[in-house]
Amino acid sequence: MELLIFYPIGTLCVFLALGVVLNKSPIGSAMCLIGMMLGLAAVFAIQHAHFIAILQVIIYAGAIMVLFMFVIMLLNLKGDDTVWKTREGNTLLTGLGAVLVVGILYKMTEITGGGEFDSPTPIQETFGTTVKVGTTLFTDFVLPFEVASILLLAAMIGAVVLAKSKMDD
C-alpha cells in the first residue's frame, strides 16, 4: 500500500527536480522546486514522520521559497530577461560535474545492488510524533540544538548589522 503511494510521488519528485534544472524561466524553476518540496514532505509522511513533513512544508515551501519568489519577482520587473543565461565553454566545471554525477551513480548502484537488506525494525507507536521529536531534541540532542540556535542567532544579527550599515549611508 505504501509503495503504491511512494512510486508515483517519487517519480513526480524526480521529474520536478529535473524541471528545476532544465526550466528556462526562473519562476518556473521556483515553482518546480516548491512542488518537489511538497513531494518530499509526502515521502516523509509515508515514513510516519509527520512532524518533519509539516516542518518541510512550513519552512521550505511556506517561508524560504516565498522569499525566493519575492526576489525573483523584484529582479524580473521588466520581464524581458526571463531566460537564464547559460554558462558555456567552462570545461573544468563540466568535467567536475560529470565526475560528481558518475561518482554518485556508482555509489548508488553499489549500495542498492550489493546483497540483502536487513528487514527494518518495527517502529514504535510514538515514532515521529511532535512529543517524541521534542523530547529527543531537548534531552539527547540538547547541545547540537543549542549550538545550532546560537549559529542562527549570529546569522540573524549579522544580517541586521549589514542591512543597517547600508541604510545609514
Binding site: M31, H50, F51, I54, L55, V57, I58, A61, M73, T130
Partner: peptide
C-alpha cells in the same frame, strides 16, 4: 485526526501565498 493538526492548518494556509503572488506576477 492528525497529530500535527494545528501546524497542518498553518502550513497549508501559508501555501496560499503562491496563488496570489503568481497571479499578479503572471498577469503582465
Amino acid at each position: 485526526d492528525l497529530d500535527v493538526g494545528l501546524l497542518f492548518v498553518f502550513a497549508i494556509a501559508s501555501l496560499a501565498t503562491y496563488g496570489y503572488a503568481i497571479a499578479g506576477w503572471s498577469s503582465n
